[in-house]
Lab assay of single mutants.
Amino acid sequence: ETGKELVLALYDYQEKSPREVTMKKGDILTLLNSTNKDWWKVEVNDRQGFVPAAYVKKL
């Protein structure tokens, strides 16, 4: 879809709370919100949640 910003997972991340999502290094995720410098909201496999901003980079 146009207008979607994507990020690349630089590291594996295992969710530690229900508000977070698990990702694997190399995953491409849809970026939903990056206003917080530490935690970015992403969508992966129809799930939305937060990942550490340092673990992903914008494509």
Rank of each mutant, 00 (worst) to 15 (best):
V42Q: 00
L8C: 09
K57L: 12
K4W: 11
V21Y: 03
G3T: 13
E20M: 05
N36S: 10
L29C: 10
E1Y: 03
V56I: 08
K24W: 10
Y11M: 10
V56Y: 01
R19C: 15
V44Y: 14
F50Y: 15
T2C: 15
D12P: 06
S17V: 04
V21K: 02
G49T: 02
L32F: 04
K58M: 11
L8W: 07
L10T: 05
K4E: 09
G3M: 14
W40L: 05
W40I: 05
R19F: 13
L59C: 14
Y55L: 15
Y13I: 01
V7I: 08
Y55E: 04
K24V: 10
L31T: 01
D12G: 06
K4D: 07
K37M: 10
G3H: 14
L59E: 05
I28P: 02
P52W: 03
M23W: 01
V7M: 05
K41P: 01
K16F: 05
A53K: 06
E43V: 10
L32W: 05
D27R: 03
E5T: 14
K57E: 14
E15P: 14
K37N: 12
V21G: 02
L32K: 04
L32H: 05
S34K: 07
V21P: 01
E1G: 14
T22R: 05
L8D: 01
A54E: 10
K58Y: 10
K25W: 04
L10V: 07
N36V: 05
P52L: 04
G49D: 00
A53H: 03
N45P: 13
V7K: 01
V56R: 00
E1T: 14
G26D: 05
V51P: 00
Y55W: 07
V42S: 00
D38Y: 15
G3D: 12
W39M: 05
A54S: 15
Y13E: 00
I28F: 06
V51G: 00
W39E: 04
Q48V: 14
Y11G: 06
E43Y: 06
D12C: 06
W40M: 03
D12W: 03
E20W: 03
N45C: 14
R47I: 07
A53E: 03
T2A: 14
V44N: 15
L6V: 08
L6G: 04
K57R: 13
T22M: 04
Y55I: 09
L32D: 01
V42I: 07
W40V: 06
E5H: 12
A54K: 14
E5I: 15
G26S: 03
T35C: 14
G26N: 06
D46W: 06
V56Q: 00
L29N: 01
M23T: 03
G26I: 01
K58D: 05
N36E: 11
K16S: 10
N33M: 08
A9Q: 00
Q48C: 11
E1V: 13
V21W: 04
W40C: 04
K24S: 09
L6N: 06
D12T: 05
V56P: 02
S17A: 08
Y55D: 05
E15T: 08
K24H: 10
L8T: 07
E5D: 11
P52E: 02
P52S: 02
T35E: 15
T35S: 14
K57C: 15
Y55G: 07
I28N: 02
S34Q: 10
N45I: 12
E20I: 04
K37R: 11
V21R: 02
D27K: 03
S17D: 11
Y55Q: 06
N33Q: 10
V56F: 05
R47V: 07
E20L: 05
W39A: 02
Q14G: 07
L29P: 01
D46V: 07
L31I: 05
V42W: 00
Y11D: 08
K24P: 01
Y55V: 08
K16L: 09
T30P: 15
F50E: 04
Y13Q: 00
Y13C: 02
Y11H: 11
T2Q: 14
K41I: 14
V44F: 15
G49P: 01
P18T: 10
G26C: 10
Q14T: 14
V51A: 03
K25C: 08
L8F: 08
K4H: 13
V44A: 15
S17M: 08
K57I: 15
W39L: 03
L31Q: 00
M23Y: 01
M23G: 00
E15F: 05
K24G: 05
L31R: 01
D46K: 11
K37V: 11
T30G: 09
V21E: 00
K24T: 08
W40K: 01
T2R: 12
L29D: 00
T22P: 06
D38W: 15
P18H: 10
R19V: 09
E5N: 10
V21N: 03
V51K: 00
N36D: 15
K16P: 04
K41S: 07
N45S: 11
K25Y: 05
A53N: 03
F50C: 13
N33V: 08
A53P: 06
F50L: 10
Y11V: 11
T22S: 15
Q48I: 14
N45H: 14
L10N: 03
